[in-house]
Design a protein around this nucleic acid. Structure first.
Length: 686
DNA sequence: ACGGGTCCAACC
DNA sequence: TGGTTGGAC
């Protein structure tokens, strides 16, 4: 666990924790006999021995590199142990790594605010803990300094020839004439060393990296940046970094110093320009976000070259797998963290045969996320079909149809975002969602935005905004029937015709005789309740049962999206009176409730059942977000005497600090930039 | 045909 | 504001 610590310009002590070859460490914990041996983790054994995605330091010593194939690694290092990434549902399953990453965070987060940057990378703000330690046990008073600490790299500390490095480091940490910030930093180093020992115990694997802990005093930042190659700087490893080199002639971060902030802004925009100007000076005002949980979940897979998916059935097959995984993760997020995702997005890559630009853009599509594996699968497929039609072109689809062999999908992924916590005190709601959703409790409000463009809202407010695609799906794949029961048939050999002959027949070939602009969509709208759920899992019929209609009326309020739990709270906080809102949500006048937001979801439906509980909680909602509360904050920040800040409650201090940080500004529109010579310097505009 | 994710800024 | 895209790691 190599760790770099640094002080930011505002004097905070930040640790960057980067678990190197993390996947290997996790696998070595699973198989302790592999500890200390040259090991690599690979994905997909089939092609040239699989792709290496993590390499232990023992293996690196043999010249094994990431992005080698397994076969190459064996050549370079015959004794290497290759461990495969776990596979579930025919795809890489990163869950064990994700969970191990959570373990890491849970240890680190005891010492300070954590930001989970990736599966194996965390930023940790140790300022508070370091301050406490400085008071209780200042470095100069320490007699015992751990080995771990003495092994630190201290940037800027010269170790003279023949001198004892550890002694020098010890002296550096303990020197009494150090600045306050360096003493704080020293404390940070002690804390990190301690954390690393804990991690070691937790992961129980060898410490692989030679340079395990690096301390970066403020005084050495300048020298560091002066010689740091542009490309090594975070965020500059890509096109921006290239542009900096080719257009401004910068080889190192320090070379940026010669350019004014204005110049950099002209070249790269107001925010990037300021950011560049700052980082050249070692200034990075970004604070560590106190966020332990991911903002989204995704599941995807690539289908390189010949493996490309060429039929709707095989796409559906794989989408089902991806959605199943996603749904599982959403379910655990709900159970463990009491969070609900609101948006489902589908991404794909595809090529079209016979077109010169064979990899045209495949549009991504999103829609409100309905919980329940089957729902997610249905919606994902519908999104895919919408995107595919766009991809193929509305007119082309008339002649070729989407079941043609003219396209191939080379990657698929589904993701869930807009994840918000269930308000505290409503845990019974979580319980409500904890189990599987009975399909009977659903009402199919299939997809909002994805089709709104194709299906204009009727003036009355279009209670049913589903389009042709989804309705075809519903009809051709009535529940229970649509499910591909045996995905393995698809998974093991990627033959799309996985015992689905009947279903393949029922695939929507209809799309081949549909009108280009999607006008036909409207015709299906003539059955207003077509998409409502049957109470029983029977195929949907075009003549809805009374029960169904009833369901729609009660739950129908939610169709306008004003009644989700979160919306409920948001609206409240946006200064609507709860009474007023309650009237709306409990009433049957859908129109007045409609303001914005998502069409209905099951969650919202369930929310209705829990409304009383929410109402009782809402009374305890904090008031500061109410208008009066806001006004209290409406003064000039510059007029505040900074010395009082310390006396404010921590929360307010934080808010105040936020004001002192650099603010992002909206970027200047292109038209304004393009008028000058500066557009010549815009990044990578060819 | 460098995989599978995740996050962010910019654009519309 | 929110969906969509592109980029970065």
């Amino acid at each position: 666990m190599p760790v770099a610590k640094r002080e930011t310009s505002d004097g905070r002590v930040i640790a960057h924790v980067d678990m190197d070859c993390f996947y290997v460490q996790v696998e070595q914990r699973k198989q302790p006999n592999l500890r200390g041996l040259p090991t690599a983790v690979i994905q997909y054994n089939s092609f040239k021995g699989g792709a290496l995605i993590a390499v232990s330091y023992e293996a690196r010593n043999f010249g094994v590199k990431r992005s080698m194939r397994g076969d190459e690694a064996k050549e370079v290092c015959p004794q290497i142990h290759l461990v495969q990434v776990p596979v579930a549902r025919g795809k890489a399953d990163l869950n064990s790594y994700r969970n191990a990453g959570s373990e890491v965070v849970s240890i680190l987060s005891k010492k300070g605010r954590c930001e989970r940057a990736s599966i194996d990378e965390v930023y940790l703000d140790l300022t508070d803990a370091a301050e406490t330690m400085l008071l209780e046990m200042p470095p100069e008073a320490r007699e015992d300094i751990q080995e771990e600490v003495l092994n630190s790299h201290v940037l800027g500390l010269e170790i003279k020839e023949g001198s004892d490095a550890k002694e020098e480091v010890r002296k550096w940490f303990r020197r009494s004439d150090a600045t306050y910030q360096d003493k704080l930093l020293a404390c940070g180093a002690f804390i990190v060393a301690d954390l690393r020992m804990q991690m070691l115990a937790k992961l129980a694997s060898g410490m692989n990296k030679p340079a395990q802990q690096t301390v970066v005093p403020q005084s050495s930042v300048g020298g560091l940046l002066e010689s740091l190659p542009i490309k090594k700087m975070r965020q500059l490893g890509g096109k921006l970094g290239s542009s900096l080199q080719s257009d401004l002639g910068c080889k190192t971060v320090g070379d940026l110093l010669q350019f004014s902030e204005e110049k950099l802004q002209q070249c790269y925009g107001i925010n990037t320009g300021t950011w560049l100007w700052n980082i050249a000076r070692g200034i990075n005002g970004e604070q560590v976000e106190g966020r332990l949980l991911p903002k989204s979940h995704g599941s995807g897979k690539t289908f390189p070259g010949p493996q490309a998916l060429r039929t709707l059935v095989s796409v559906q097959c794989w989408l089902n797998e991806l959605c199943e995984e996603l749904s599982e993760r959403l379910q655990s997020d709900l159970n463990q963290n009491k969070r609900i995702a609101h948006t489902l997005t589908l991404h794909a890559r595809a090529y079209k045969k016979g077109e010169s630009d064979s990899h045209r853009k495949f549009p991504s599509k999103s829609c409100p996320l309905r919980y329940g594996t089957t729902k997610i699968q249905e919606d994902a497929l519908t999104l895919f079909q919408a995107a595919l039609r766009e991809f193929l072109g509305f007119y082309n689809s008339k002649t070729h149809g989407s079941e043609n062999n003219n396209w191939g999908v080379t990657s698929l992924s589904v993701s869930a975002s807009k994840i918000v916590p269930i308000p505290s005190g409503t845990h019974s709601i979580a319980k409500y969602f904890g189990g599987q959703f009975p399909s009977s409790s659903s009402f199919n409000q299939p997809l909002g935005n994805a089709f709104e463009e194709a299906v204009p809202s009727s003036p009355s407010g279009s209670e049913n905004c589903s389009g042709l695609i989804s309705s075809e799906l519903q009809q051709n794949y009535p529940e229970e029937d649509t499910e591909i029961k045996n995905p393995e048939a698809c998974l093991h050999h990627q033959d799309p015709l996985c015992n689905l002959s009947r279903k393949a027949d029922s695939l929507p070939k209809e799309s081949s005789h549909e009108s280009p602009a999607g006008n036909e969509d409207r015709t299906t709208e003539s059955e207003p309740y077509r998409d409502l759920p049957a109470k029983d899992p029977t195929p949907l019929s075009s003549t809805p049962s009374l029960k169904t209609v009833e369901k729609k009326r009660t739950a129908g309020n939610n169709l306008k999206g004003s009644c989700s739990i979160m919306d409920f709270f948001n609206n409240y906080q946006n200064s609507q009176s709860s009474l007023e809102h309650k009237n709306v949500t409990n009433g049957h006048d859908v129109k007045t409730a409609s303001s914005s937001g998502h069409p209905s979801t099951q969650i919202e439906q369930a929310a209705e059942s829990c409304r009383e509980e929410i109402d009782s909680n809402i009374g305890e909602c904090s008031v500061p977000n109410m208008p009066q509360g806001r006004q209290a904050w409406d003064y000039n920040i510059d007029e505040i005497d900074h010395s009082v800040i310390d006396e404010l409650p921590p929360e307010i201090q934080q808010e105040f600090q936020a004001w002192l940080r650099p603010h992002k500004r909206p970027n200047v529109p292109k038209s304004k930039r393009g008028s000058s010579i500066t557009h010549y310097f815009l990044p990578d505009k060819k």
